[in-house]
């Protein structure tokens, strides 16, 4: 165990665990848009930046992304230093210019006092903030169905060649974890579609209820050694109430 100081309070931490983990454990609110516990941190959104210093740094301080910075003994962290707040509102301002229609971005920006962007709005833009949560989740789950394509301002998330991706099993994890709900999907009458690909749902033999797609069930059965019958028997006892 090591000790670090967060906003004036000395707290315990494990050596090497990320600052954000410690900060959140202390119930301190630091905004993030590219962080998800299921995947490796990426450092893309830069909102989680904090000011750090050490007594021996002679008053010099650094600005680092807390999601990626390992805790070290004696570190002094300020999660809401003036410069950090300024940086966050500036980044949110950039987001707001790019995604003026996203309610999630508007709300977060408002929390940092940015109600209207001072930059040129991109009116016909979409709501994907390029956080990479979807692609990283898809990679972590082992499917690699979607990825970031292109670079710079024109970067986008897409399946290979922009066609219905072979590797996608329709688990919807990308869509459900997108911070701006950008990814479209549709579930109805035992059918599911996402990324221009159509799926049939696996239905319970007894009650006909559906939970996941046939492809996903088959994948799990094959790769995870689970009896396929389990997926055709989804009587959810606890759902009766």
């Amino acid at each position: 165990m090591i000790h670090i100081t967060i906003n004036g309070k000395v707290v315990q931490a494990k050596d090497g665990e990320m600052l954000l983990t410690v900060i959140r454990r202390e119930q301190i609110d630091v905004p993030t848009l590219c962080h998800h516990e299921a995947v490796e941190p990426s450092g893309a959104c830069r909102l989680c930046m904090v000011e750090i210093t050490k007594p021996e740094w002679d008053g010099w301080c650094d600005y680092v992304t807390s999601c990626l910075y390992p805790a070290a003994d004696g570190l002094i962290v300020n999660t809401h230093a003036p410069k950090v707040n300024e940086l966050r509102s500036s980044i949110l301002d950039m987001y707001l210019a790019r995604h003026p229609k996203s309610p999630e971005i508007r709300q977060l920006a408002a929390e940092y006092g940015v109600l209207k962007t001072q930059f040129e709005e991109i009116v016909d833009g979409n709501n994907c903030i390029l956080c990479g949560i979807c692609t990283r989740i898809c990679d972590t789950m082992g499917f690699h169905a979607i990825s970031m394509v292109g670079r710079g301002h024109g970067k986008e998330v897409a399946p290979p060649l922009n066609m219905a991706p072979d590797a996608c099993v329709g688990c919807l994890s990308c869509a459900k974890n997108c911070p701006t709900n950008y990814i479209e999907y549709n579930v109805s009458n035992g059918n599911l579609s996402i990324w221009k690909k159509d799926f049939k749902m696996a239905a319970c033999k007894e009650c006909g209820k559906t939970t996941i797609t046939k492809e996903f069930a088959e994948y799990l059965s094959k790769n995870r050694d689970i009896n396929i019958d389990y997926f055709e028997n989804v009587t959810n006892v606890t759902e009766k109430n």
Partner: peptide, 11 residues
């Protein structure tokens, strides 16, 4: 990540 795999897998 709310993929529902466990929901479907639990017999």
């Amino acid at each position: 990540v709310n993929c529902m795999a466990c929901v479907a897998a639990c017999p």
